[in-house]
Design a binder for these strands. Sequence first.
DNA 1: GTATATTGTGAATTAGAATTCACATAGTCT
DNA 2: AGACTATGTGAATTCTAATTCACAATATAC
Lengths: 202, 202
Amino acid sequence: MKKLQIEKLQSEVRQEQLARAALALIAADGLKKLSVARVAQRVGLVPSAIYRHFAGKNELLDAVLEVIREQLHANVAAVSDQTRDPMERLELLLMAHVRLIRENQGFQRVIFSDELDNGLPDRKVRVYTMISGYLKRVAGIVAEGQLSGSIRKDIDPDTVSVMFLGLIQPAAILWHMSAGKFDITRHVNKAWPVFRAAITAQ
Amino acid sequence: MKKLQIEKLQSEVRQEQLARAALALIAADGLKKLSVARVAQRVGLVPSAIYRHFAGKNELLDAVLEVIREQLHANVAAVSDQTRDPMERLELLLMAHVRLIRENQGFQRVIFSDELDNGLPDRKVRVYTMISGYLKRVAGIVAEGQLSGSIRKDIDPDTVSVMFLGLIQPAAILWHMSAGKFDITRHVNKAWPVFRAAITAQ
DNA sequence: GTATATTGTGAATTAGAATTCACATAGTCT
DNA sequence: AGACTATGTGAATTCTAATTCACAATATAC
């Protein structure tokens, strides 16, 4: 008898598809409730099929991280295309970051969850590397601003980059915890001018 | 035959003891790996004994949250005892917060974990309320500073309080992820002067 | 078109962990 | 001391979820 089977896809395509499905599920219900079975179901596969494309749940999560990394990277690139002015780049990046978070709670949930912690230090290190990479780009923008004279030269760009993250991060968490009640956009709009003034060269 | 049994303790004492044991385990290995069995073992009890003191794991986690809330509360109170100057209070609180985090990674791990998420919105709301309460106290200090003229009056105290949290929060996460490699104290020491200048009335 | 490799299926296995329960022991009250 | 209640024990139960495996269907290479 001929069994009806879902279309076969090449592993690379499936991997991407599965990673995005996983991220969507995480956004909706959190990492804790993410099961291999649910990811499979979401793309119309049977649980065991996952193992044709990933060695296990860990590798699937690695792929999810990769998706996030790419997205952050793309944000920086897009912003750099829009303007050459460092301060404007920071502002645009901030807004882009907020948008990213609002559109995809999954990011926060993935990055700050212990669920990722395997026991192996690998995973945590990977996330750290990913965030560090993002911060390094931000620090790069800051350094440009210092060179061009628009940003105070007496502050460490790395410090500024972490503070920059601090404009969004706690707000994102409050937003998430309050189920949308805390207005993250409003906060960022009010906090940015204060931050900008603090780093602007006089 | 007479079985050797651990000393019996009143439920209230045990509850506190168990909550602290749980927090210690979370700090060490993360919320994901926290099992009722391990908590019991840590205080020399058998797993099922937990249920004499808590209705279930959820209630145990509630008790852990309570411990954290009390600690944050105590921090604000201690700082307010040390000085009456608002700006000094903020600085002391910042340092106290850093110390708290350094001494107890568990705090971060508990608060930002999806593990807490039951499905019931209860838990998330509770954590949100807890953090909001902390932020309200910070905002209160800021408002005092505005009254006494040391802090700019054109910034919303609530915004400042979230930014204040932003001085520590991302740093704490980086510190945690980097297994101590990222120097949170150094960051805060460099970021604080920038932040202080940003909110100081001129 | 046929052989071969790749991808999908369904059932079974395994493991970890929460929870329950009948029984045992220790405090406490009189 | 006797009785009652609170706390601790150990075994059994149940559930969830990851993972494995033999087999089936599909795609790809020749």
